[in-house]
Computed example of a mutant assay.
Amino acid sequence: MTSIVKNLENEHATVAMGQLIAQGLTPPLTIFLTGDLGAGKTTLSRGIIQSLGHEGAVKSPTYTLVEPYELANVDVFHFDLYRVADPEELEFMGIRDYFNQNSICIVEWPEHGQDCLPSADLHIHLSYQDNQREMTISAESTLGQTILTKLK
């Protein structure tokens, strides 16, 4: 499918981009976030989750694997699979149950989930580029394409 590239100068710009992305999100939706440690995946997630209506801190679910946010019209599940050694761990926690008709699932380090995860609608890759970050957003489904078109 198609993709767009955005440069993000700092943390504020990363949060703002998350807020912009959130404007086009409707469940069911799956977002994969990839990139090196410290590239801004959780910062982008914070912008998305707070823009969807969560008031308060958005912490990285590195140790809990998933952080749920039950909002007015949607359930948001923020996953961080960095510490998953075996994808079967995800089966034991019932990961497939989180991906339902009323949920938006944001998955950091999806490559650690292998065959336990559904396909992404959006794949967002963050990388360092000089003193800023570069974000590549790729549509992986028809819904993802619709969101990507609104971001152009």
Rank of each mutant, 00 (worst) to 15 (best):
Q114P: 08
L143Q: 12
V15R: 02
Y98C: 03
T149P: 06
L25N: 03
S51T: 08
K150D: 09
R96V: 11
I95T: 04
I147M: 05
D86G: 04
P27T: 07
G144I: 13
P110G: 12
V58Y: 02
E89M: 14
L151V: 07
L81Q: 03
E111C: 11
T26N: 04
I124L: 07
Y63K: 06
P87M: 14
I106Q: 00
H12T: 11
T62K: 05
I95F: 14
L37Y: 12
N131H: 15
S51R: 01
A139R: 09
D97P: 06
L117M: 08
A13T: 07
E55H: 09
S127K: 10
D97R: 10
Q132K: 13
L20Q: 09
I4F: 11
E9V: 02
D115F: 12
V15A: 02
T30P: 04
I104E: 02
D36S: 13
L20S: 05
V58E: 01
E91R: 12
F32I: 11
V5E: 10
L71H: 07
L8E: 01
A57T: 13
L122Q: 05
I124N: 03
H112M: 07
A16W: 02
T42P: 02
E67H: 14
Y128P: 02
P110I: 10
S60A: 09
E55P: 03
G18T: 02
H12C: 05
T149L: 14
I147F: 14
H78Y: 11
D80T: 09
E134C: 09
T14Q: 01
R96K: 10
K6W: 13
C105G: 02
G18K: 01
I21R: 00
D97T: 12
A120R: 10
L52N: 00
S45Y: 04
I104W: 06
R83N: 06
W109Y: 11
T14H: 00
D36F: 15
E55L: 12
S127F: 14
T42C: 06
H112D: 05
P110N: 08
K6L: 15
R133L: 03
A57D: 07
Q101M: 04
P118Q: 08
K6F: 15
K152H: 12
D75M: 06
E70Q: 15
G53A: 10
L65M: 10
Y69C: 00
A139W: 07
G47L: 09
P28F: 15
E70R: 12
G47W: 03
L20P: 01
S3T: 14
S51V: 07
G24P: 05
K6P: 03
K152W: 09
L122E: 03
K59S: 08
V107L: 05
H12L: 08
D36E: 09
N100H: 14
D130K: 09
L65C: 03
K6M: 12
E88W: 14
G38W: 00
D80G: 05
N10M: 05
Q101S: 11
E134G: 09
L71D: 02
D115G: 07
Y69Q: 01
S45N: 03
L20W: 13
L44V: 01
G144T: 11
